[in-house]
Design a protein around this nucleic acid. Structure first.
Lengths: 340, 340
DNA sequence: ATGAAAGCGCTAACAA
DNA sequence: TTGTTAGCGCTTTCAT
């Protein structure tokens, strides 16, 4: 492949003139520029990205790291991210961290190695180890969780949705329909995200003066299969059943729905159900699934905007943005007793 | 950020020794290696990707270019692609070409500039211009359409699904239920993909001895909105209605379904409907949508496998793979008259 | 086993 | 307006 040296040689001029002409930075007589462009064409020249990067130290790439590429929620986020990044000429690198700390560390390492200029990262378990690595980074990072290090002075930004409130509102929604026996299927409780959502559930019960019943609480992993398994163990075994169940995300709610079908439990006739994420599928399931909308696309767009602002060097004041969840009520959570 | 020179200096040795120790290629005494690793740690060293790339000429990245990032079909493909690429350490760069030739050319240009080592590209309109650019490329490319240049001796590979057959089978499915008035909503007919699928429709009619009725054929753009608009113009205006409609993809079928609702036309009671792509949503729509499965994930996996093989330098014999579509019959296409 | 030195292709400060 | 030159950080041949 031809280089600027080849062009320079062919035209009997210096490489730097070629560089200037091609990049448009620096002086160059219109006539020489024309000849250079012509020669570049003839030699089928294309600038080498790695050489450019080595010199300029920018990659024009942004890394998007997600815990589970199978979850459509992230696809929605990608729309928002890409929408913002594309006009700036940034390319998007996708990485599935498989909900594993070592893979998250690998994503961070990619940034250290300058694979990308910045990163948007979704994780369910920020801990000292990954947060510290992120804080040591020189590149801007935007997380999608609220996180404040114990030590303070964090170098990353974040955009977050108050999911705790979201789950609490689902509980309120159930309580307002006279439900007392409310179950919960969450993510891992020892992870930040899982804990937060669980707290929303706990607070909701507390607020209504209901006692928490351990039998009705299950731990899942945010996948459809996880929701299914949690559903089975919640619904079978002849234990008294809850009247309503909150799932920490839609994927698990779908799995739960499948478990209900198998156990011949009708939703919403026998049991009310709601999820979180408001995937587009949720408006089509049977019954249509009530869900807390986190506005994935808005999260993506906001995160990308924050990142771009940082990449463009503005030392912005805003280092975090809070978004509010919205409860989308559909058939699955509306008791036939009240709304016949 | 520290470089191998910093490490070398700190230890009083040469940069090349450091390079050898770190890359694991070439001789290095175990003791020196230990000291180097130690020093690297202390200096918070990370290898610079661009420098490495400039020297080695490999980027460890694969570009995936799609015509519409909003279509979940590509998300399914991404699963398959990533599944194959990840174990080899390849990163995935995503690009939305917005169904525009200039953006497709930009994607190809990215490859010329060595942003990635190879590319998987989905396009609805391969033409001399982009195919020629692809053929001029030194990097391997896998397309997801059957395409043979008039000139022959193409340098790309492709994996393709016989969508023409798929659409034809939908028509057969309708005909077998005694339908005579069958409509079609396709992509742009002057694009390859659009033409192929349309041909499937035409052949299906021909096979059944039915005449093609121009009023029942509409052109869309593979989006939900496009299907909706095409649906409106097909259904309104007091023209005689078709008994069954084939959509060239599911997204348009969803839009068509919306148009039906508005026009108070019941599916499948008043009209049978089927799409193509078999998006996961299709098993949840109301009514559940009959669809031709193209196995997006398999396409992705296969394309990635072909690409990896090329990237690893094997001059493979197989330069194209054909996959068969599968008709998934659901409620939307089954006439109540036959199956009460 | 280690080091010296060249070079990957580009940019940019400085000189002419 | 154009050219000279150094250097980005790494790998790799060749010499030691």
């Amino acid at each position: 492949m031809a280089t600027i040296y080849d062009i320079a040689e062919k035209l009997g001029i210096s490489p730097s003139t070629v560089s200037r002409a091609l990049s448009g930075r620096g002086y160059c007589k219109e006539e020489t520029r024309k000849r250079i462009l012509q020669a570049a064409e003839e030699l089928d020249y294309a600038p080498d990205q790695s050489a450019k990067m080595l010199k300029t130290r920018v990659s024009n790439k942004v890394l998007f790291a997600v815990p589970d590429l199978c979850n459509p929620f992230y696809f929605d986020m990608i729309q928002g991210i890409n929408e913002v990044l594309d006009p700036y000429g940034y390319l998007l690198i996708l990485m599935d961290t498989k909900n594993r700390l070592d893979e998250e560390k690998r994503a961070i390492q990619l940034l250290r190695e300058k694979y990308a200029d910045g990163m948007i990262m979704v994780s369910f378990h920020f801990c000292d180890e990954n947060i510290e690595m992120i804080n040591r980074l020189n590149s801007p990072v935007v997380l999608t969780n609220k996180y404040v290090s114990p030590v303070g002075k964090d170098r990353f930004h974040y955009v977050w949705v108050d999911t705790q409130l979201g789950i609490k509102e689902v509980v309120r929604h159930f309580v307002s329909q006279g439900m007392n026996r409310i179950g919960y299927i969450g993510g891992r409780f020892h992870e930040q995200t899982g804990r937060e959502r669980y707290e929303g559930y706990r607070e909701g019960l507390e607020e209504a003066g209901l006692t928490l019943h351990a039998d009705w609480v299950q731990e899942g992993d945010y996948t459809e299969q996880g929701g299914y398994l949690a559903g089975l163990s919640l619904l079978s075994g002849g234990k008294p059943l809850p009247e309503a169940v909150v799932c920490a995300n839609d994927l698990m709610a779908y799995g739960f729905l499948r478990a209900c079908e198998e156990q011949q439990i009708r939703v919403p006739e026998d049991l009310l159900l709601a999820g979180m994420d408001n995937l587009s599928l949720s408006s089509r399931t049977s019954p249509k699934l009530t869900s807390v909308s986190l506005r994935a696309e808005v999260i993506g767009r906001t995160a990308a905007e924050m990142l771009v602002r940082r990449l463009n060097g503005s030392e912005q004041r805003i280092d975090n943005v809070k978004l509010l969840p919205e409860l989308i009520v559909r058939d699955s959570s509306v008791s036939r007793r009240l709304a016949p």
